[in-house]
């Protein structure tokens, strides 16, 4: 397995975490940060091992917490649980279908922030929460739902471009060879 596709995923997560603190115009227009990490976590959970999924979700969650006013580590459980559940359910999901990818991103975009909010309330902190939160969660879900198929397309291309291709099985089979002539 080539290291390029996996590295590109971690680089994308690094850039996406930084992007979450930028783009004030997106925040001004829709009232949400440019948060696309749950969609990326969904791709990793669907296409990589449980070990890579765990490392990816934990590192990503810690990255978000390090740039936020969250207590360090509070997003680890929601991120990981989303990745974990997506990973163990991957055999029953039609992951090649665009609508499945959309709903995966949509679910992650809502569940990860909602889980983090629940963790914060459990930790007796008082985050901003009101009717506006529901609108923000739906918008985050929609954003992640829309970018998730794009991530599947992009990283599948990278995977195909850099990974070793399986050897093509030749159609020639000696036992099916038609013997001609008199023997």
């Amino acid at each position: 397995m080539s290291w390029v596709p996996l590295t590109s995923l971690f680089v994308a997560a690094w850039l996406a975490t930084y992007a979450q603190t930028q783009f004030p115009m997106v925040r001004l227009a829709f009232g949400i940060p440019f948060c696309i990490l749950p969609a990326l976590a969904a791709y990793v959970a669907m296409n990589h091992s449980i070990l890579i999924t765990t490392v990816f979700t934990v590192v990503t969650a810690l990255g978000v917490d390090s740039l936020s006013a969250n207590r360090f580590g509070v997003s680890v459980v929601p991120f990981f649980l989303f990745g974990f559940i997506a990973h163990i359910s991957r055999h029953v999901l039609l992951q090649d279908q665009r609508y499945t990818q959309f709903w995966l991103g949509f679910t992650g975009g809502i569940l990860v922030p909602l889980g983090t909010l629940a963790m914060l309330f459990l930790g007796q902190r008082e985050p901003m929460f009101g009717s506006v939160t529901i609108r923000q969660l739906l918008l985050l879900g929609l954003l992640n739902g829309l970018v998730c198929p794009a991530f599947f397309w992009l990283f599948d291309r990278i995977q195909q471009g850099f990974d070793y291709q399986p050897l093509a099985v030749p159609s020639f089979r000696p036992d099916r060879e038609i013997k001609r002539g008199r023997t």
Binding site: W14, T17, Y18, T54, S66, L67, F72, G73, V76
Partner: peptide
């Protein structure tokens, strides 16, 4: 292991947690 790691991080003293957070944020 992940749940234990999360529990450990959430139970760190405030000072250590802040230092760790700022250190990790240095990646960006």
């Amino acid at each position: 292991i992940t749940l234990m790691l999360a529990l450990l991080l959430l139970n760190l003293p405030a000072g250590a947690s802040t230092r760790l957070k700022l250190g990790f944020g240095g990646v960006f």
